[in-house]
Amino acid sequence: MAEQKMNFFDKMQALDRRYIYLVVALAIILPLVIPFNSRTYVTEPSENIYKKIDSFTGRKDRAVLMCFSHDASTMAELFPMEVAILRHCFQRNIQVFTICFIPAAKPLMDYALQTAKEDYTVQSGVDYVNFGYKPWGIFLPIVLGMGDDVAKAVETDDEGRIVSNLEIMKEIKNYNEMNLVIDFAASAAVYIWIEYARARFGANVAAGVTAVMAADNFPYLQTGQLIGMLAGLKGAAEYEKLVDVFATHKEMVNGVETVVPREFSKEVIKDSWIKLSDIKNPVYKTARIGMNAQTVAHIMIIVFIAVGNIGYFVNRKKNKN
């Protein structure tokens, strides 16, 4: 009997990896096809980005710069946060710039702008500007140049217009006005902003990073070198929720559902509960839907670790005997 048990564990240890792949696929497909509501709690680094951006509401002498430093490989994590931040800016009349330094990020940047502005009447050059793609080799010179003059550093936007002539630039000179830089990265690009823009000009820097990099950034959050961070799909889900709860908050006004933005409040976000099925546009809830599958997948990984270890310890005991 004991020998049979050992055989079972031996077999478990030598299980063909393709069965494992099948379980992984099912663990992700099922929660996506059979949706359920789950509660995303919001962390402080995400709140800090929201509060900082929201403080620019309606101001012509403030702007946010979004730097897209990733390609399609990490789009699943970073794209929803980019769309959520752009929505926040468009909804609250916050001036926003976009730029990228790798070719493969350029269409993602266009796609994010295209997606976010669908529900808003915003005008390029007035409400936002896409600075477009600039080669990686001039990343550093542009980061440093922006400390003196943003328009001079980037020269032209994506449409070939001279940036200094654009209406949006009237009250924007350097990092004093372009008061927040958010780098969306799957690489160390965010550290260039910390090392050069923050250290030399005191620019406020925030990061939207893939979860792989998130744990490394906590020392920079503590020092304030990063004012906030969105970490992976969860960070994106948190920001989606913040935008829904505050920036696009809906109330019944004269019997009509109207968007009535409200100020950030820790108490409100703590108790807020938004039913995903109430959100009509699927793009606005991509990350939160993904978090359902993420939950199941995490449990699956923990079970894998547990089962693998049980097999390992049983075998070890057998070998000792």
């Binding site: 240890q13 299980l15 990896r17 494992i20 792949y21 379980v23 992984v24 992700i28 390609d71 399609a72 490989s73 990490t74 789009m75 699943a76 493969a104 997948a297 699956m300 990984i301 894998f304 670790i305 089962v307 693998g308």
Partner: peptide, 19 residues
Amino acid sequence: GATMFSLLAFYIASAAYKA
């Protein structure tokens, strides 16, 4: 591009089980 990196999810699950 997106799929290439998503393969890692399968590998990390396999590693969780076996390693």
